[in-house]
Design a protein around this nucleic acid. Sequence first.
DNA 1: AGCTTGGCCGATCGAGCGTTCGACAACAAC
DNA 2: GTTGTTGTCGAACGCTCGATCGGCCAAGCT
Lengths: 207, 207
Amino acid sequence: MANHTPTSSDHETKLERLLTVAAETFADKGYHHASIRDLSRSAGVSLSGLYYYFSSKEELLFMIQDRSLRRVLSELEQKLSGVDDPEQKLRTLVQNHVEFLARNMAAMRVLTQEYDSLEGEYRTTIRELRIRYSDICTEILREMRRSLGTGDIVPLNVATFALFGMMNWIYVWYRPGENIPVDRLAEHLYRLFTSGFIGRAAVTSSV
Amino acid sequence: MANHTPTSSDHETKLERLLTVAAETFADKGYHHASIRDLSRSAGVSLSGLYYYFSSKEELLFMIQDRSLRRVLSELEQKLSGVDDPEQKLRTLVQNHVEFLARNMAAMRVLTQEYDSLEGEYRTTIRELRIRYSDICTEILREMRRSLGTGDIVPLNVATFALFGMMNWIYVWYRPGENIPVDRLAEHLYRLFTSGFIGRAAVTSSV
DNA sequence: AGCTTGGCCGATCGAGCGTTCGACAACAAC
DNA sequence: GTTGTTGTCGAACGCTCGATCGGCCAAGCT
């Protein structure tokens, strides 16, 4: 009577562990190339035993993406509450994204690289979460522009995609521990995006 | 006697067509998920007939990546010869890359997304080409910095990866014809990278 | 003791995969 | 007219895949 759901937390813990193993395997070999048998080997569970925790390979992929995206989103929204200055908001977004990405490299790689592997309702759900995420970014950029009174140099959606491109490209080259620290990297990207590479106001020619 | 390799150009033409079809299929369904049977259907050639033009699926993937990379590299080097100003060089690089990417979206998508699917010598070859490409970019950035006398704000390799991230992210969201024209997009990205989003010199806080 | 349930497994199925092989038609060379 | 080359094909092989199913076992309840 003490705990009326005695096994549910064990179940959740083990599921979480399986998702981590799966994310690493998918990140390493790619979703389609990695077999459920690979997972069962890495997780030390039998092939059929895995199906107790999820009902299909695609649902497994969905769970990895869904949980990562919701987590990074909720951490961001939590950190943003209370911040008013648009520039500080953007810095918070970049720091949060880069740091989360470095902490959950495998899952985030699966999230960005295997989106096309989802179909139907799974895909729709993930797409809506992604849109919600990028909308937050675009809105911050809009505020920045308004508060600084700068003109419409670059379309907001192009700027948003460029920023996410800079950040998400990290998993192609960055290895935590081998390169510069994560917080310095985030600061570099934030500065590159806001101030640019040269760091001065006017760029010479016309167009 | 007039032409001692009469069929070789036909052969090359057909191979080129097959590579295009294959790139589109791989870009659409992913390398591992797309079957050779899919290709044979799309190309209107029998399954076994395909093997006259390549000896394995992996070689096919390699040829797509190798040809794209060599082509974009040679077009870049050609355009760069004669340009002295580092800023103009960088603008040329961005224009060339973005424009090529928009013209060969499928192949470039395969190039960036399916690098991990190559193994052994194939992988080594492609990696060396990629390094040669990014080295050109890093070298231009170094020249820019020297000629402008600006300090070491952001490490050159971080800046290089950020730039390629901005550019290569294009295939995630950009659809030629639906969004802004390609040359405008390239100019936006060039400006974003050099001058940044805000477009002024100093950014407030310390760190 | 008997019964239920959560967790897990070995064996197996049907489907699809990449690749190979022998054959065949067209065409040029001798 | 024979021979060799180029391009194409249908059929098949061996293998791996995702998924299923019946059953086992330990724990908790009655």
